[in-house]
Design a protein around this nucleic acid. Structure first.
Lengths: 331, 331
DNA sequence: TCCTAAAATGTTAGCGCTAACATTTTAGGA
DNA sequence: TCCTAAAATGTTAGCGCTAACATTTTAGGA
């Protein structure tokens, strides 16, 4: 493999000029640049990543911190990591998934997820001491921690508003039985869009389930026994699949008798029949965005990143207009 | 961060001795080793990956070749890549997923999948010219290409034998409508276990479907209209989910009326109700094994690796004994 | 005790880049 | 034409490690 030095010789410039053409082309005269580019092409030059990192005082490794409580083989995490991985490897960074903060090793920065508020403070301090940037999946006010989060409230609002626009007036929710930010947010979104539409929020229409197919089945049985609704908003697609299974087993048709909307859009909503309409989180893209933000920091960007990403409605076949009482306004 | 040199000073040895303690501890006297290890611990030393790669004439990047025809977001590929990724990053290698062989860049070796026979020959030659090792997911006789494959015949045999052992005698198969090695192999396994049990292989009991939920639904409708069977072996879990949906919609109970077995075991078999019994491929592990094999080559192992991995039955709730005619022998 | 081969450790140079500073070239006004 | 500041390019040193060879130490037989 050709080295930068060989390219320099062929183009009749100093090695540093070749380096500039690669890393900071504006600093080189157009004429010289073209000569160097031609030489690179002729020698099929491609940079040695290890040498680059070493000279730039990097080690080329990013730590991705995911607490042990989170199962790495769940689809959400897999998509998330795939997004991170794609962005990092494109820039020849390797990454290490850390499950706890026991062992320390060399890395250039951190991508962090699944931490509680006080843990975030602590982690930020830890990183600061080591002079390494941190990007968080979630939200924090800490100035030197970049963060990107999904707007679960907005997502839930969007889903329920869609049902309301289809004419549904009595809409149940099956939430996850877990006290996490996202469950609270999705409930709030559900409630907000009802109230925005002038509909009463009725806690009796909110059911709780384990985040599993069986959880959804159990909740659906309970729901059907107690309430009569025309639509159900599920806090996750997994629950929605369980609800779908149970409703069909009880003889209801989806969407003719009951409309259904899930949340997540990681792909398994497509395995139900009909495929479930869902609020899709761009998880892969989120992972990639986090990685990109971190690399930006490493390349000297100073401005803080604080972002909220809105998930979007992805139509399947599990919802339809209710009665003729459709609100034709918008969707 | 402490460097190897600092460790050497503290332990009062040459830097090279520290390097030996890390990479080849048998070459160092126990006494010295302990002193160095203590120094490393005291200084919280961890090696700089970039420097290591550079000095060892590596670049720390592995190319993972996955043809464009394969969708990266399908669960099989995601698990596969996750396995590769986990093994590589543990050794601080980064990797790049290549979709075609257009651009060339520096890398230490290749992991390759999804190639046809002649493409494998060609790729092996390409890698040989660059003096880089290749590990293939699949099978080849080429001596200098390591390979690891899943034994689809054995897997299918195992599933169908299980049904036979449960007393089933009339077992249909829904295969994927695609002329690939794995579809042929799974059909052969189905056929073989029938014949081994002295049952007749009847081509009329083999149905074909697109590898999708809808494909499975369509095939199931056709199957039910034409044949009366007590069990169905599906070539993929996705198809099995479609079959399950349709059978339930037609009023059949699973497993009481019909037993069902799928193939893949990537997780979505759990989303059906009841969860589908499947032949599980250890895809994540396969990815990790491929990566480990490649790293072994890079570290000087000479012996070729040619491996077949047998997938295993993973019981869900979609199969049960048929009649009292159970063969109690074994499973 | 001396000698020798093997074991243990050390020395030197270099992997391929870039940061930081040094020098040369260029453009354009006086 | 000369001068000056900015633009362009070059030089030097070093990032942190390991390969390859060199030297020292050690064990154990003569």
């Amino acid at each position: 493999m050709a080295t930068l030095k060989e390219v320099a010789e062929l183009a009749n410039v100093a090695p540093m000029t070749v380096s500039r053409v690669i890393n900071n082309p504006e600093a080189v005269k157009e004429n010289t640049r073209l000569r160097v580019v031609a030489a690179m092409k002729e020698l099929r030059y491609s940079p040695n990543v290890a040498a680059k990192s070493l000279a730039a005082n990097r080690c080329g490794v990013i730590d991705v911190f995911i607490p042990e409580s989170i199962d790495l083989s769940n689809p959400f995490v897999m998509h998330f990591i795939a997004g991170i991985s794609s962005e990092l490897s494109e820039h020849y960074y390797s990454f290490l998934i850390l499950r706890n903060r026991g062992i320390e090793h060399q890395c250039d920065g951190y991508i962090v997820t699944g931490l509680l508020k006080n843990e975030i403070d602590e982690f930020a301090q830890y990183a600061r001491e080591r002079n390494r940037p941190v990007v968080l999946f979630g939200h924090t006010d800490i100035a030197d921690v970049d963060c990107i989060d999904v707007d679960n409230v907005l997502g839930a609002e969007c889903g329920v508003r869609h049902l309301i626009n289809e004419g549904h007036r009595k809409i149940a929710m099956v939430n996850v039985l877990e006290d996490k930010d996202y469950t609270v947010d999705r409930l709030n979104g559900y409630r907000k869009s009802l109230e925005d539409a002038g509909l009463e929020y009725n806690p009796k229409l909110v059911f709780y389930a384990q985040n599993s197919v069986e959880g959804g089945e159990t909740a659906a049985a309970e729901l059907i026994a107690r309430e009569k609704v025309s639509a159900i908003f599920c806090a996750t697609d997994t629950i929605a699949i369980g609800v779908s299974n149970k409703l069909k087993a009880l003889g209801y048709s989806i969407p003719d008798d009951i409309s259904l909307i899930g949340f997540d859009g990681l792909g398994h909503q497509l395995l139900a029949s009909p495929p479930i309409t869902t609020i899709q989180q761009p998880v892969y893209k989120l992972g990639a965005m986090l990685a990109k933000t971190l690399l930006g920091r490493l390349n000297g960007r100073e401005a803080a990143t604080k972002m909220m990403v809105a998930p979007k409605l992805l139509r399947g076949g599990s919802d339809k207009s209710f009665n003729a009482v459709v609100n034709p306004e918008m969707d």
